[in-house]
Computed example of a mutant assay.
Amino acid sequence: MPIRIVLAEDQYLVREGLSRLLDTRDELEVAAACGDVDSLLDAVEAERPDVVVTDIRMPPGGTDEGIQAAIRLRETHPEVGVVVLSQYAVPGYALALLEGGSERRAYLLKERVTDIAQIVAAVEAVAEGGSMLDPKVVDALVAESARAEGSPLNELTPRERDVLREMAEGKNNAAIAEALVLTERSVEKVIHSIFLKLGLGWETAVHKRVKAVVLYLAESS
């Protein structure tokens, strides 16, 4: 069965283009396309989708409606995954999205829309209960945190930093191993070392691991 999606984007041409792009994939099905947050919430009630893909700013306020919708859906439809698309690589927005939990949540920059594989990866991740954070947001968090005097991040080896970035993006051990050309056992050892140096509790669930790392980076920056 394809992953059923409700799409929300206030700009008509962008909405139509993204809808058609998603519909080119057999594993995805766009059940509804909306132009504002109220229509989005109504469509979720009517269509019962697996995933919502939403712009961060929509009518009526044009501020952070996408994130507010995600927070509301956490309460009303916790089984629905949400991918927020934003043109802002601002850690604060991503943290607001993850505040109530990182499970079934993803934050991607709009520039990724041209790469269908990235969008599909995010949709599949949240549909399966995972999470994903845009690499540019992760890089911004790591850079800010590393500048802090006495930051434990400065104790990490280059390999540990590479794994930290991959982990914060929402990748599991197998995906990290593939990306960095390592064995899964090596990745596990590196992650243990990272969590030890950063003083974080060990987490096996990927979405909890993402939240732990991202909150650490935010508090350290």
Rank of each mutant, 00 (worst) to 15 (best):
G66E: 00
P158R: 13
E103A: 15
T24A: 08
Y88C: 09
I119N: 06
E155N: 10
E178L: 13
A33C: 07
D55N: 08
G66R: 01
T76W: 05
M132F: 07
T24N: 10
P60T: 03
A175D: 11
L196T: 14
S19T: 12
L28H: 02
S86V: 03
K189Y: 13
A218L: 03
G35T: 11
S186Y: 11
V123A: 03
L156P: 04
G92L: 07
Q11R: 14
D139I: 01
V52S: 05
D38R: 14
R165L: 12
V214W: 00
G100P: 01
K171A: 11
E75G: 01
H77G: 00
L85F: 10
A125G: 06
T183N: 07
L141F: 10
L108M: 12
S86Q: 07
T157F: 05
S86H: 04
K189A: 13
A205S: 11
E155R: 15
I71E: 15
N173P: 01
D10V: 08
A143M: 12
C34M: 10
V126R: 02
E103F: 05
L198Y: 04
V51F: 04
L182R: 08
R74L: 14
R161T: 03
A8S: 07
E99A: 14
I191C: 06
E128W: 07
A205Y: 02
V137M: 09
V142G: 04
Y12Q: 14
D50Q: 07
P49V: 03
L198K: 07
H207T: 07
R57W: 01
L164I: 09
G150V: 07
E160D: 10
I194E: 05
D38P: 00
N154P: 02
G129R: 12
V52K: 03
A179G: 05
V52R: 01
V123C: 09
K171N: 14
A177S: 08
G129L: 08
A106V: 02
I191Q: 12
V51G: 01
V137K: 03
S102A: 15
L153F: 12
E155Q: 15
P158N: 12
D134T: 09
L13I: 13
A177M: 05
V44F: 06
K197D: 03
E188C: 02
L40G: 07
G61R: 15
S39I: 00
R20T: 09
A31S: 15
I67P: 00
S19Y: 04
A148F: 10
A33G: 04
D38Y: 11
L28G: 03
A117R: 04
G130A: 08
S19E: 14
E128D: 15
Q87I: 11
Q68Y: 06
A33R: 00
V44P: 00
L18F: 09
D64S: 07
Y93M: 02
R165S: 09
M58W: 09
E111T: 13
K171G: 05
A8R: 04
V120T: 14
K110V: 06
G129H: 11
I116N: 02
